[in-house]
Amino acid sequence: MADVLDHGGEMLRVTGLHAFYGESHILHGIDFGVRRGELVTLLGRNGAGRTTTLKAILGLTGRRAGSVMVNGREAIQLPTHKIAHLGVGWCPEERAIFSSLNVEENLNLPPKVRSDGMSLEEIYELFPNLWERRKSQGTRLSGGEQQMLAMARILRTGARLLLLDEITEGLAPVIVKKIGDSVRLLKARGYTIVLVEQNFRFAAGIADRHYVIEHGQVVDAVSAEELSASADRLNKYLGV
């Protein structure tokens, strides 16, 4: 875990993060870091606290404690809407496409947090399906199109740290491949990405590093190079 100690050029550093929903204590001191341009995954069983980790970074849980440094700025005390303006884009597990907005309104909804986001033209080039359906009600799209829309709308804002939650869940293999291509493209463009992923094979192909979460704590970290040597260990964590 030597790389974890390197704090230089970090886009995200989470230290001792605790989070609660009402009385239930969900995260018990999460620690991990992501350097600029890196893609890391959060692996673990259902209910281990991966989605909650993303929500806690955004201040969407109940009470939280510890430290969340985004791009060198402490975010633990900030209200949710200010955290987005540090350059964080979130693609929630349930996708959360707005049914009262059409596709283009969905794309235009998140305010720009930096000036260098993608233009609508670039986004439509990346996801041509969205161009064809731009006047449709957001929730009329297919599952795959909704997933693309959920990712596309945070690219417009100029956010450089993307928190992507289960972006392949319930999608056909051909769509998963397409989503994988766009994630690779985003990484190539220098985005920093935290991926919560159930599909380990999908994650293994694109990540620099994997963090394993169990019972609200990071219990292990495996880099891409160590992956084949650590397969048994990971299988045990994930129970596959």
Partner: peptide, 24 residues
């Protein structure tokens, strides 16, 4: 209008709207 789309989004899903940087 744009303000209206914030209002509609905030009505539908306040948490995600906040996470996008809108002061719900």
């Amino acid at each position: 209008t744009r303000l209206g789309s914030y209002l509609r989004a905030g009505t539908e899903n306040p948490d995600v709207t906040r996470a996008f940087g809108i002061d719900v």
